[in-house]
Design a binder for these strands. Structure first.
Lengths: 119, 119
DNA sequence: CAGAATCCACATCGATACTG
DNA sequence: CAGTATCGATGTGGATTCTG
């Protein structure tokens, strides 16, 4: 799911913004720091990750805890509401396991027929 | 779900493009004509609906059947793969019933606090 | 380390007008 | 009726740069 080469870009379903689902999964097993979220999501810029986290915070999905230390440390943690998104993530995974191959096959078949240069 | 005034715009989950989920629900109970899909989705332009249907067709979600009649008649119907999206639609509905009010409350609470004019 | 500010590329969505 | 063609508005995602 974290691999941009995986066919998840073909997924007909999306949770929140582009990185929301991955962030939620990252937080599944407990609080994580900003950098700890960034590491597995290697292609997300800090700006976008901040936006995603702020949106989740606004919607009561995560809590943000800043510690007054040097260097700074901030932890993000899923709320119960945020954990409820894991159910949706799971529903997506289940669907993908069962149906994504068929979608991919249909798509490439369509590309071969009515695709690039017509047919 | 078809009412633009409903809070579905706040839904943290989306199936396909903007109108995909609604189109799929429209086709739930059998084949429908282009116009029959447009009617309940009153704010969709023919261009966008065509794009949505073509995408669904490419992905093996719907079949398109054109009849050589005057006036023209075209019917769209869900494939088994397309019907599988209904499971996702249902998962979304279940989630919304249980958690959307909490999301909305958290969001408006955030708007009152750190909202428009900061604070 | 965690994040803010700025600018920009791109895709989606939509209004309008026209066609077989 | 069922589209197609063109143009414009908009929002999201990203690169880059800078700060406490």
């Amino acid at each position: 799911m974290f691999d941009p080469a995986c066919p998840s870009s073909a997924m007909p379903i999306r949770i929140g913004d582009k990185w929301t689902a991955m962030v939620v999964v990252c937080l599944e097993h407990g609080p994580r720091r900003f950098s700890e979220i960034r590491t597995p999501l290697r292609h997300v810029t800090p700006k976008v990750l901040t936006e995603t986290l702020r949106a989740l915070e606004r919607d009561g999905m995560v809590t943000r805890t800043a510690y007054a230390e040097i260097p700074p440390r901030v932890e993000y943690e899923l709320t119960p509401l945020g954990r409820s998104l894991l159910d949706l993530v799971d529903a997506c995974r289940t669907w993908a396991d069962k149906h994504l191959p068929a979608l991919l096959e249909a798509r490439s078949a369509a590309a071969r027929n009515g695709g690039p240069d017509g047919g």
